[in-house]
C-alpha cells in the first residue's frame, strides 16, 4: 500500500500531499503522523497541500483530525500552500478549518512553528532555529 512520506525538519514534521487522497491513504497518514509525533517529540506538523487541485470535506476532515490529535500531543498543525481556487471553493463549501493554522509556503509555516516553540518554551531550548525568521515580532500580532 502507498504511504505518504513524513519528513523530519528541525522541530517539525513535513508531509507533502501530492496524490489524490483516498480513504486508506488518509487513514495511514493519520496513523503515521501520530506515531512520529510521539516518537520524535515534534512541536509542529506541516502539511503541504500545494499540489492538491481540490480539497473536499473528506480531506478537510482529515486535516481537522490530524490537527486535533496533534494538539493533544502538544504539536501545532500548519496547512501550507493552499491554492486560491481551492480556498475559494472550500469557503463556498462551508469548510473553514478553524482548528488548523495556515501559511503561504513551507518556509512561512516553519517560521510559525518556530515562533510558537520560542514563545512557549522561553529560552530553555537550545534548538538551532533561534536566529531564524521566527525571531522577529512575536508580540505584535494582537492587532
Amino acid at each position: 500500500m502507498d504511504r505518504i512520506p513524513v519528513l523530519k525538519l528541525g522541530d517539525a514534521l513535513l508531509v507533502t500531499v501530492q496524490v489524490d487522497m483516498h480513504d486508506r491513504l488518509a487513514a495511514a497518514l493519520e496513523e503515521d503522523l501520530t506515531g512520529r509525533i510521539a516518537a520524535t517529540g515534534a512541536k509542529g506538523v506541516l502539511i503541504d497541500i500545494s499540489s492538491l487541485e481540490i480539497v473536499d470535506s473528506f480531506i478537510g476532515r482529515m486535516l481537522d483530525t490530524i490537527a486535533a490529535v496533534s494538539r493533544m500531543l502538544d504539536a501545532d498543525t500548519v496547512v501550507v500552500g493552499m491554492r486560491p481556487a481551492v480556498a475559494i471553493t472550500l469557503v463556498e463549501l462551508g469548510l473553514e478549518l478553524r482548528g488548523v493554522r495556515t501559511a503561504l509556503n513551507v518556509e512561512r509555516g516553519m517560521a510559525l512553528i518556530g515562533r510558537r516553540s520560542d514563545a512557549g518554551r522561553g529560552g530553555d531550548d537550545g534548538g538551532g532555529d533561534r536566529d531564524g525568521p521566527a525571531a522577529e515580532d512575536i508580540d505584535d500580532d494582537g492587532g
Binding site: 481551492v86 480556498a87 475559494i88 472550500l90 469557503v91 495556515t102 503561504l104
Partner: peptide, 10 residues
C-alpha cells in the same frame, strides 16, 4: 468569503 479564503491560504 475573500477574507476567509485568504486565511485558508495563510
Amino acid at each position: 468569503k475573500t477574507v476567509a479564503a485568504a486565511r485558508l491560504m495563510g
